[in-house]
Design a protein around this nucleic acid. Structure first.
Lengths: 204, 204
DNA sequence: GTCTATAAGGTGATAGAC
DNA sequence: GTCTATCACCTTATAGAC
């Protein structure tokens, strides 16, 4: 981010409105598919006024993504080496599913970036994310070696957790097309399924 | 597709080259992010010549997607009610993973379409796909009722299979950034993991 | 800080020669 | 069937008045 952080109340409010609108539009249309017109309209500003707050379309996108990785990693950070292994992993699964329910746009923004080759966050993936995965994979392997967990490759186990939980945000349209749920009721079924599913797979 | 099917050998060859190039470009860049220039260059044709074979950019995209749903559904169609439940499901998981290994571009094209709201295949999702899921969910429920399978909600079980297997195609960049695999070696680990994972979760 | 007007460049699609 | 040239449109970004 090249721009100095906003100072006044109105500036903060407009900046927030822009980022919120941009998240909504980018997550639905992708970077190239989103237009400044859409974002400006949804933020309630004119297009030149929007470009007064951010120097370019890409700057908005980068700002959104750079804040996202921390949110992304938080639930895994919470996994505690000294807790009960199965309870820790199940709790992680449910936190991650909750993120799909509460922050579907953020999940789709992330998914879009990865599917398109992650040009703007590949360094963070190879750096912070990889390091955290290695750390937690070691913890899981320790649990396995202690006989407290089924012997499953820890990294692929983490991939499976990301995949199954993010699916409900990223493929939301498909899930709804098949289940025809009222509102978000199917998230409760998903939580129940995933909890039972992982308990069964993980018991030693 | 508005255009009459190609007849001559050269026409067939060019049409194939266009579709192959378009699949590659669309899956990397998305519909809006892809340009006819890129597709034409990758197909070895000029842009006007490309538009001699297809009436528009969207026509190419639709042609790709319309052929994809059948490929998509095929592995699930093969699941046999009269086979051994756990073996049938594990075999389906491995067929699906094999598709991620062999057809990653197709998987990403599909993922892109869903993430962006599936404007061109929502009808097929609500129709063919939904019907097939209902059919196979009933089969799985029958296996559960017969005590041959753990009691897990069949539709969410299918979602989990799609999510975990497609993850290796759609999030390929992330998986590689974390595992740093040589070539596609990690697919063998993924297969081993998923087989053990589903066997453990599914046993009654 | 916010607007109207517009520049500058890219992109889908067409015209017309060969 | 394939090409060069070009149109028409859209989109990002800037200029300059207020």
């Amino acid at each position: 981010m090249n721009k100095v952080r906003p100072q006044t109340r109105i500036q903060r409010k407009n900046t927030e409105a822009i980022l919120e609108a941009a998240l909504s539009v980018f997550s639905r249309a992708g970077f190239r598919g989103a237009t400044l017109d859409q974002i400006a309209r949804e933020a309630g500003l004119s297009k030149p006024n929007l470009l007064y707050y951010f120097p370019s379309k890409e700057a908005i996108h980068i700002e959104l993504l750079s804040g996202l990785m921390d949110v992304w990693l938080a639930p895994l950070h919470q996994m505690d080496e000294h807790g009960d292994p199965i309870e820790e992993i199940v709790a992680y699964v449910l936190r991650k599913l909750e993120m799909s329910r509460e922050l579907p746009n953020e999940s789709r923004l992330f998914a879009n970036e990865i599917v398109h080759g992650a040009p703007r966050i590949l360094d963070q993936i190879k750096g912070d994310l990889r390091a955290l995965v290695e750390e937690k994979a070691a913890v899981i392997q320790g649990w396995i070696d202690a006989g407290k967990l089924a012997p499953l490759e820890p990294r692929h186990l983490l991939f499976s957790i990301w995949a199954t939980t993010q699916h409900y945000a990223d493929f939301d349209v498909q899930v709804r097309g098949i289940l025809r749920p009222e509102a978000n009721a199917h998230f409760n079924d998903a939580a129940e399924f995933l909890e039972q599913f992982y308990r069964r797979a993980l018991r030693p």
